[in-house]
Nucleic acid binder design. Structure first.
Lengths: 230, 230
DNA sequence: AAGTTTAAGTTAACGCCATTGACTAAGCCA
DNA sequence: TGGCTTAGTCAATGGCGTTAACTTAAACTT
């Protein structure tokens, strides 16, 4: 029963990058509740408090994790001349990341990380808008709409996938707590489509949302041409 | 220094409704970190653990708070025959609630509460879509898009308003942590609009997003008419 | 109305967690 | 080689959600 003595990690063997990688491993395998300093220490084969030499607080670490999600999403991305394809691609990448690392996405994807990868992501979206012909203040507003939509939906997807009890074996979602003794006639519209509600494909909803955005940009550009020719 | 003895609360004097009301009061005044069982007990002038007679866990209580946010948003809402106005009105109400109770909104607005008010909200949105002429599976998908957008944006707004250090005295947002030593030339598009980024009006972004949704429904209906006349 | 039952409110405790301060030793520079 | 800096470690702390056992007042029974 003697506590197994761990050899002290050599000086400089830890880094923010390694800690973030370990954290994501834990989140993927055991969910958001498992991400504690104790568990992190075990994963790193280091003292639980060693992390504090690299992050000021848990929140700081989570921001770094979130920024790493941005980095993962952008890895290998190359801008093109097709702004539609770029906006779809960037959205798709965020969505993919949320599906690959749901707990991490639920935890940090709607946070402002203040990190380099987030800045790069901002730049990529703004570039696509610029290529489309959206500039200045308008670009910033549209950027914010896009980010809200893409990151909001992705974070929600992460939460859905990583919260046990919300997803059944077939992978479709349902409500844990049934709307108890309610008169169905009181909520006829909800009642009528209850069965459909359980069978929504989240990725279809997401791509619809993204298409909605792309179309709205197209419309804006069309409107601009009209007013120019007038 | 003797501990002030509180007279025991009489037997049925606590209720889920009163607890939720107290919780929202605390969240509004002191932010999400202040919502502890101890603080809640003080607010209710009751034992911290008394809450457990009414909610199975903290998470259950938060779901109830979230459902109350739905109730607040819907209070006084009356459906009309104008589906556009109804969708705007419902979105505006959620947004208003997020601005009035930011910490509560940040905490629970993208949760599935399983409560009655959520069900009523679902019914209201589906009704508006039905009036518009969107039914069945299509209605469910559009409903989900709408909910993701409205609740996602509102929850993000709540998080923004309730996280200290993200909002300056003038009310416009900025990043706490500046993107440290980065070559501006590496992210030219982000760099070019940095000053604009700090001056976005979130409510403008929100109404743009809602208009985008309404317009996309209109377009869908137009397309439907075209294919019918063909 | 008296006795019984039930459960809401209380009390005290437990275990987990993030965080801190003091300690240790490994790499670095003079 | 010897001191200095600091990453890694250890031990302790305070706050938190949660639980079990206890109290007591309302409600039910006959």
């Amino acid at each position: 029963m003697a506590k197994e003595h761990r050899s002290r990690r050599s000086r400089g063997s830890l880094s923010q990058a390694e800690i973030v990688a370990a954290a994501i491993r834990i989140l993927d395998a055991e969910g958001s509740e498992a991400l504690t300093f104790a568990r992190l220490g075990a994963e790193l084969q280091a003292s639980p408090t060693a992390v504090y030499r690299h992050f000021a607080s848990r929140h700081d670490m989570i921001c770094a994790i979130s920024d790493e999600l941005d980095a993962i999403s952008l890895a290998g991305y190359e801008p093109t001349d097709d702004w539609r394809a770029d906006l779809r691609e960037l959205a798709h990448r965020a969505w993919q990341t949320a599906n690959t690392h749901p707990a991490a996405a639920a935890m940090g994807m709607n946070l402002l990380t203040g990190g380099m990868s987030e800045l790069r992501a901002v730049d990529c979206v703004l570039r696509a808008l610029h290529v489309a012909g959206v500039h200045g203040r308008e670009a910033v507003v549209q950027y914010q709409v896009y980010v809200n939509i893409v990151l909001g939906s992705s974070a929600a997807q992460g939460a859905l996938l990583s919260s046990p009890g919300l997803v059944n074996p077939q992978g479709v979602w349902f409500r844990t707590q049934v709307y108890a003794p309610v008169d169905p006639a009181q909520y006829p519209y909800a009642d009528a489509v209850m069965s459909d509600l359980r069978q929504i494909d989240p990725s279809e909803v997401f791509s619809r949302t993204v298409e909605m955005f792309v179309t709205s940009i197209e419309r804006m550009l069309e409107g601009r041409e009209l007013s120019q020719s007038a």
